[in-house]
Design a protein around this nucleic acid. Structure first.
Lengths: 327, 327
DNA sequence: GTGAAAGCGCTAACAC
DNA sequence: GTGTTAGCGCTTTCAC
């Protein structure tokens, strides 16, 4: 910048002001300096600027995974994409890292070392307690997931309870009574979907059968094994509500292998509405989560958290997309 | 840091040295300072340190998408995950951004403004020329994709030609003669897969029928429409080789809808080996790309590019995973 | 409207 | 071994 200043015959201050569009600088000077800068391929050093201004233009995004395992759910990529766009829209940068459950300290230091303004956390919420601690420490953040009663951090998520309710009620309306629930209920999102499921069952006067509940971890590499293990029990069921489309599609594969017809013998509903959901046969009935809004909502809440505003959650609407797998 | 220094009764230099593990500082002093820092929750400011040291500990990762459209291929998430791990392993940070084809300037300025050390580019390679320009400008980078003859930038990719060859030869060995190719050959990766496909066909003395070639954009939202449009032509074919598993699974859905049996009437081979490939029914034969190695290779090449080493490419091995869809 | 000067938080010569 | 000093590249009072 000093070079530019010298070449333009002005001081560094003037260059700085011109380049940042200060109204103090007359149009003529500004264009002259801007042109000069462009011709020299000069760009202001982002790091130096934030050091001086004392604010970082970067948001940390943490992908939580419970093991070294690859997360492979397309839904996650959707959220991440939405987030990337939302962050860039704000003119900010996004620092991505993948952490395991024990890396609370890493998250903390990302903020405290001034690398990022705040954190957006995506992934499995089994570390609720850790997140609460971070929140109490004053780390600005926002979390994708389900709002837990005692959460001290802001949460963005879809209406999981409603999603579970809509899916199950739909199955009941199709005449199903023995509806199995596939999902890891220790995971808050799945837990809420289960609550919705249970509510719909209760409203219909159908008793929940604990055997019709199968626990899956999202993205579990042994997904198919778990499915097969459950199916091998030969339980009596006429429908399955799965907490992710990947699980549901995998399940339909397993059913087909056993010559169990979907939807004729067993109706299936998934969750997420990934691209493939509408493309498999039969097309999968599923609960759509509004991915496009997710990024924006997370970024908004994170900024509120930075600003020290009162903590709030955002619940995004869900929608049942009825396709042939449940008809 | 000045605070810590004052409290420890030493100078800032000593604190700096102690915290960065300089051998000049005796064990005793170091622990004392480290403990003090910990108890105050102090962390060195990463930005200030890089400004002073003149090196950024951050790598920019650019996800290219040809429109505002959501990219939804799980394979992409795999690459990204692998990259994240590789970057973190090096103790570096990863700045993620999603850009469209025309944003060559954004990429350039990420480097020139000192935000990142270099760029890793993932996504569709229709902007080959842009990348070449960036390389000539001296922007350190590495690209996931297919090595083009006149590329000036280092490329990491799997052996697409071999993949296409293996897939097609396998289908020929199964007795197929009318093998359709699904993939956008203007995209370099798909182009090379097509070359392998063509080679296998030629070796078997089978003439290529241009009607049996369908162009798809990866991640095209109208994927299913394109598939249906092609199928509606009612061409004569006994196998399909698709350039992504998402396409292949979608295709199997479309075939099933038309009561065309896979593999009995039409054999299908996909590409990528995503999780669902082995879970659908029939399980999908596919070409596996070694995702886990991808991140590491990209990071390595990027560093070589920073160091000004001679440009080279890395071709990762591919492997045909035979499952029932082609037997 | 413009420049001089100070300083963001840190590290690395250089001296002792 | 440790402190002093200078300065990374920028922005922003403050003075003119």
């Amino acid at each position: 910048m000093t070079d530019i200043a010298r070449m333009a015959g002005v001081s560094a201050s003037t260059v700085s002001r011109a380049l940042s569009g200060s109204p103090l600088i007359p149009e003529a000077t500004r264009t002259r300096i801007t042109e000069l800068a462009r011709s020299l391929n000069y760009r202001v050093n982002a790091g130096a600027a934030s050091l001086r201004k004392g604010d970082v233009q970067t948001i940390g995004v943490v992908l939580l995974s419970d093991s070294a395992q690859m997360i492979s759910d397309p839904f996650l990529l959707g959220i991440l994409g939405s987030l990337t766009d939302a962050v860039n829209e704000q003119g900010m940068n996004l620092l991505l890292s993948r952490l395991h459950e024990d890396s609370k300290d890493r998250m903390r230091s990302m903020v405290e070392s001034g690398q990022v303004t705040g954190l957006i956390v995506i992934g499995q919420l089994t570390l609720h307690e850790h997140l609460n601690e971070l929140a109490h420490l004053g780390i600005p953040m926002a979390v994708w997931g389900a709002a837990l009663p005692d959460a001290s951090y802001p949460v963005v998520g879809s209406d999981n309870r409603l999603g579970g309710y809509l899916a199950t009620r739909h199955l009941i309306e199709q005449g199903c009574r023995r509806i199995a629930f596939f999902g890891d209920t220790t995971h808050p999102e799945a837990g809420q979907r289960f609550q919705g499921h249970a509510q719909a069952m209760e409203e219909a006067g159908i008793e929940l059968d604990p055997r019709l509940r199968q626990h899956f971890l999202f993205g579990d590499a042994r997904l198919r094994e778990s499915i097969d293990g459950w199916l091998n029990q030969q339980l009596d069921f006429d429908a399955i509500f799965a907490c992710s489309d990947v699980t549901a599609i995998s399940l339909m594969g397993a059913l087909r292998e056993r010559n169990i017809a979907v939807p004729a013998q067993v109706r299936v509903v998934g969750y997420d509405d990934i691209l493939l959901a509408s493309h498999v046969h039969p097309p999968l009935t599923t609960v759509r989560q509004p991915i496009a809004q997710a990024g924006r909502a997370l970024v908004d809440l994170m900024f509120e958290s930075v600003a020290g505003a009162a903590r709030r959650n955002i619940v995004l609407p869900t929608e049942l997309i009825v396709r042939e797998s449940s008809l």
